[in-house]
């Protein structure tokens, strides 16, 4: 009788030990990075050569790097990145859900071809379109503006795909009933389907947010002026070929990680659910 429960306990123990081990391996570098940002400059690499307790537990702590990082362009960069990321989320959810709605609900010529093109956009490497995109943005007179950072990232093939998959699963009868009651298509989208698609909106927001939060190359190309500096650029400025301000780098990188963590922790359960659901349909 006692054999089965004991085995279950042992199995659970093994399973959790394995999970803890994997989690530790994944989190250790991030832990080291955050801790290093509190170490005095001379200590950062002094203990890294042999892995031991001293690698993980700092002997001396200092706020010097954080103070230095936050007295420079970092706060400005965080504010800029938040503005860019949140604007992209607001515009992106609107535009992409409307597109997804159209693909899910309406019948129109070349619908499949157009949808295939939408899907192709998220498989295209950014490097292959960056020069024409830059020429376009420059032609529109938008270089060095927030619009240059936000507009190209609003429409996302992947997010259109997620919304289409979700809206396609809503029973057609629901739309028909609303039409019979006299609702316009825009009203149906706004009042009926959007309120239903909370998890998809959460996922889309998270994807758009993280994508913009991580943006590095495009901001350097399109809006490199000091007023539009974004977080990843501010992080990278701590390192040149010849000099690295490791403490400043780690403090800035920790900031970038911690801020991006907030929306992720809030929305991640929706994220997993939606991605899994979209791939099943």
């Amino acid at each position: 009788m006692s054999g089965a429960p004991t085995r279950r306990v042992v199995l659970a123990l093994l399973r959790y030990s394995a999970l803890v081990l994997v989690a530790t391996l994944l989190l250790l570098p991030i832990y080291w990075l955050v801790v290093a940002s509190f170490r005095p400059a001379a200590d950062i690499f002094a203990t890294s050569s042999s892995f031991g307790l001293a690698t993980l537990l700092p002997e001396r702590l200092t706020l010097e790097h954080w103070r230095e990082a936050w007295s420079g362009e970092l706060p400005h960069a965080v504010a800029n990145s938040l503005f860019v990321a949140l604007s992209t989320v607001a515009l992106g959810v609107t535009v992409n859900s409307l597109a997804g709605f159209a693909f899910a609900v309406f019948e129109f010529p070349f619908k499949r071809l157009l949808f295939a093109i939408v899907l192709a956009t998220f498989m295209m490497p950014f490097e292959s379109i960056v020069i024409p995109l830059y020429v376009l943005i420059r032609g529109m007179g938008l270089t060095d503006t927030f619009a240059a950072l936000i507009l190209p990232e609003v429409a996302s093939g992947l997010v259109v795909f997620l919304f289409r998959q979700f809206f396609a699963a809503v029973p057609k009868e629901l739309y028909e009933a609303a039409r019979v009651d006299g609702a316009s298509w825009l009203q149906i989208w706004w009042k009926l389907t959007l309120p239903l698609s909370g998890p998809t909106i959460a996922t889309a927001s998270l994807m758009l947010f993280v994508h913009q939060w991580d943006a590095f190359f495009w901001p350097l190309v399109a809006a490199p002026g000091p007023e539009r500096v974004v977080i990843q650029v501010a992080v990278a400025r701590n390192v040149t070929l010849e000099v690295a301000n490791w403490g400043g780098l780690f403090a800035a990188a920790s900031t970038a990680i911690l801020v991006a963590l907030v929306p992720f922790l809030l929305l991640q359960r929706f994220y997993l659910r939606t991605v899994a659901a979209a791939s099943e349909r």
């Binding site: 960056v130 490199p224 990278a236 390192v239």
Partner: peptide, 15 residues
């Protein structure tokens, strides 16, 4: 425009 070293060559390629 000061560009971080890690991306300066790629940025110049595009610009």
């Amino acid at each position: 425009e000061t560009i971080p070293f890690v991306q300066i060559f790629q940025t110049l390629e595009v610009r």
